[in-house]
Write a protein that binds this DNA or RNA. Structure first.
Length: 654
RNA sequence: GCUGCUGUAGCUCAGCCGGUAGAGCGCGUCCUUGGUAAGGACGAGGUCAUGGGUUCAAGUCCCAUCAGCAGCUCCA
């Protein structure tokens, strides 16, 4: 006996096997037009799936208004797309076609390569299928029968999936749409007509099972929505997001460039971008000193032997620039990390427990040979500067030091107005033995780290068991770029490996007058200045807070008659330490204002006859527009105050 | 690294079925001297990514290389 409790409290009883669709008829005909799926307790089920024969469940029908059915509809859209592709390209082999954020994809093995020129034909075929509005039929079959079906259909990937991923299933399901039969768990919308607005977006290669050693398939990406209106809004959002792309803004605002003659993946910081970077560095440097760090400088190269000791060479040779071979036989490596250098500073003399924690910080530039297909603007590059530091401390000091590092990273992100980040705490996989260091030490460290993170109220904290590096657990700060790609920025990592006797054999003399092994913490709040700046450009869409803005205020003369006064104001502002410039062109005010707005200059000081007479400027904020007349001295104080407090755009003076 | 696409003026892009290159913005000069998102006129700017090939003829077709874009894989 199956009992379904409806949202209004009524309950329905069935003593036969039924599907969601059967319930529909019981409840009332108006649902037949709007119901897409149902919620059985917390489980999303479609209307074609057999419900359990026994038990008592809450049952709620879902319509297009329920967010969770959007994903379900996109999955159905993926089926329609696959069916369309199969109609157009007989012999197509199907792989997987799941919904993803904002859309869906399907992987195919096709007789020929698809290009965007094929999209209209595929979309047209999909439109025909939508018009047919055929139902999605669900078939449940024993696994060996399914195997037979997939062999008959000549679908080798489905066969492999049945033999492999679904090895332990007794029965599996297919969904049928006319001639199209696909091994699929579901759930689906009742019929093709529910797929109302869709668009193919891109085609790309994707390895079968995500394994680079296996066959490469063609992946069609697309999006689908319940209405044309939503589809259009989504496409508009995409176009809007592209405008804040740091590669676009970086060029337009003259922040950085990448020159193929210098080398791909190597950033050239233009003067304006360099101001931005310098401000970030100064900000962080002050914080480091405040927090008990000591600044060091180390060279960009090191002997190969150094990296043999650290274990980076030759194990990571693939991702390094090859060694520089000297005539004398010495070999040097462009440094892929700063830690070995900092370790040698630690080891430059014996250390006492009284010195710990010893915190060595450096904006250290490192070089890694990233695969060509990985390079992206400033976010994935081959040379970058980490705001790096290494903390050498006792095991007992780890929790406090870790807390201070997380605290500092959070402070940095907060200061810059990042609220939408994730913190991922990567822990060891207790089953694996790949980790260095005493399991008990790990246990204690992980417990302490977790406690620290929980107590700090970090946004979107998640633990990732098994994701820890072999040398220690870590906390990563992750943010998304303008097209939704996630990037790791800040990081705090414990390291039991490099201090160990197998590596550098670090020591300090304890109160017992005997040598002990310190623990190392690697940490970088920005991660790398390149990546951070790239993300920062997108975060502010180029409209930086005053303290970071390459140009903070621009004098705009109403006509050339006021150039002298304007230049006088400009030099007063510069003398006060502001990054001021002047636009003295023979253009109309409106035109100069427009240019400054587009160049994201936070403030304009418009000067004409009135201002000259009174020793004022007419202040205009990029965000708020005309603010009226302000005496020059007040203006200077006001701007310096905004800079000192690192006020964010839109924040009010406190 | 792999798959697909792209590379034309400083920028954004047009250039059909092969016949020696175009727009807007920007830049320069001149006119205009103005009040908060585009005043006007004239002008200068290109080895069509690079190297080969096909052709009477290549920006256009083919191959290779380099670079960029999207995705996959990778990221100490």
């Amino acid at each position: 006996m199956l009992e379904l409790i409806l949202p209004d409290g009524k309950s329905l009883r069935f003593d036969r096997r039924i599907r969601g669709r059967d319930v529909l008829e019981e409840i009332g005909p108006r649902w037949a037009k709007t119901a897409l799926a149902a919620k059985l307790d917390d489980r999303l089920v479609d209307l074609m799936t057999d419900l359990p024969e026994d038990g008592r469940f809450h049952f709620r029908l879902l319509t297009a208004r329920d967010g969770e059915v959007l994903e379900l509809m996109r999955h159905s859209a993926a089926h329609l797309m696959a069916r369309a592709v199969m109609r157009l390209f007989p012999g197509t082999k199907l792989a997987f076609g799941p919904p993803v954020e904002n859309g869906f994809y399907y992987d195919f093995l096709l007789p020929r390569s698809l290009t965007e020129e094929d999209f209209p034909a595929i979309e047209a075929e999909m439109a025909r299928l939508v018009d047919l509005d055929e139902p999605f039929e669900r078939l449940e079959v024993p696994r060996d029968k399914a195997l037979e079906i997939c062999r008959d259909l000549d679908q080798p990937f489905k066969v492999e999936h049945l033999q492999d991923g679904l090895r332990n299933e007794r029965t599996v399901s297919f969904y049928r749409q006319g001639e199209f039969l696909d091994l699929c768990e579901g759930p689906h919308v009742p019929s093709a007509g529910w797929v109302k607005a869709y668009k193919l977006l891109s085609v790309a290669g994707a390895y079968w099972r995500g394994d680079a050693s296996r066959q490469q398939l063609q992946r069609l990406y697309a999006t689908a929505w319940f209405s044309q209106d939503e589809l259009r809004q989504y496409l508009d959002r995409l176009a809007e997001a592209k405008k804040r792309d740091h590669r676009v803004l970086g060029k337009r605002l003259e922040l950085f460039t990448i020159d193929p003659t210098v080398g791909s993946g190597l950033i050239l910081w233009l003067p304006k971008g360099s101001i931005l970077r310098r401000e970030l560095e100064n900000f962080l440097y002050d914080e480091l000193i405040r927090r008990g760090y000591q600044a060091v400088y180390t060279p960009h190269i090191g002997r190969v032997e150094l990296y043999q000791t650290s274990g980076h060479y030759p194990y990571y040779a693939d991702s390094q620039f090859p060694p520089i071979q000297m005539a004398e036989g010495d070999r040097y490596l462009l440094k892929p990390m700063n830690c070995p250098h900092h370790i040698r500073i630690y080891q430059s003399r014996p250390r006492s427990y009284k010195e710990l924690p010893l915190r060595l910080a450096e904006f250290g530039t490192v070089y890694r040979f990233e695969q060509s297909g990985e390079l992206t603007g400033m976010t994935r590059v081959r040379g970058f500067t980490q705001d790096d530091a290494h903390i050498f401390c006792t095991e007992e000091q780890v929790p406090d030091e870790f807390r201070a590092c997380v605290e500092m990273t959070r402070f940095v992100l907060q200061t810059l107005g990042f609220h939408e980040y994730r913190v991922r705490l990567s822990l060891r996989d207790p089953q694996s033995d790949k980790y260095v260091g005493d399991p008990e030490v790990w246990q204690r460290a992980e417990a302490a780290l977790m406690e620290v993170c929980r107590s700090m109220d970090l946004p979107n904290l998640e633990t990732a068991p098994g994701e820890a590096a072999f040398y220690g657990p870590k906390a990563d700060f992750i943010v998304s770029d303008c097209i939704g790609r996630e990037w790791q920025l800040g990081t705090v990592q414990l390291d039991y490996n490099l201090p160990s006797p197998k590596r550098f054999n670090l020591e300090y003399i304890g109160p017992d007058n005997r040598p002990h092994q310190p623990v190392m913490i690697h940490r970088a709040p920005f991660g790398s200045l390149e990546r951070f700046t790239g993300i920062l450009i997108e975060h502010f869409a180029g409209a930086f807070p005053l303290w970071l803005a390459p140009e903070q205020i621009r004098i705009v003369t109403v006509s050339e008659k006021f150039e002298d006064y304007g230049r006088g104001v400009e030099s007063r502002l510069r003398a006060a330490g502001l990054r001021a410039s002047g636009d003295y062109r023979a253009e109309k005010v409106g035109s100069k204002v427009r240019d400054a707005q587009l160049e994201m200059v936070p403030y304009l000081a418009v000067v004409g006859g009135r201002e000259q007479e009174n020793g004022t400027v007419a202040l205009r904020s990029r965000q708020e527009g005309d603010l009226g007349a302000v005496p020059v001295e007040n203006l200077i104080q006001q701007l310096l105050d905004e800079i000192r407090s690192r006020r964010l755009p839109g924040e009010k003076a406190s």
